[in-house]
Amino acid sequence: MHSPEHEDLALLFESGELDEAGRADFERTMAGCAECRAFLESVRACHRLSTSARLTPRPELDEAVLESGSPRPRLLDPWTVAGVASSLVLAGALIAFLGRPAPRPADLAWSSGLEERVAAAGEELEAISESLGAETESGDIDDDLDALESAAEIFGEQG
């Protein structure tokens, strides 16, 4: 028995919107329904007619459309550009930080002129020893002076 529902099914069948089971059902229905087949043929004829009546836009119109709206090639997308720019800024800041002149440590400033002061202290020590007449072995004094001079050299290199 033909009904509008069958025609709806014919439309869905033709548009490919029925699943496999639905298609099989409709094909079985169609086999026993001349009106269904006639309606389906009308749908197909409408489609053929519409296809034959298709118009083509003027080539100049298509060219104008392409000229005005054709996408321009994008070398880099905006996120890539932003990422590269950020990386460059960070790298520049890091290079500037690492390449700056090393500051002279304030706590080593006192070592300036240390050698002269050590030499003066040695002379003063010898003078005191002589004035006291102490039996100070000169070798002991020399050892002390050597130690002081070594310390001065070390601090001088660090400074």
């Binding site: 409408c46 007619l49 034959s52 009546a53 298709r54 118009l55 083509t56 836009p57 003027r58």
Partner: peptide, 14 residues
């Protein structure tokens, strides 16, 4: 516009 034209049947259908 140099359209690709349809046929007489389209005139009736239209």
């Amino acid at each position: 516009e140099r359209e690709v034209l349809g046929r007489q049947e389209w005139a009736r259908a239209s």
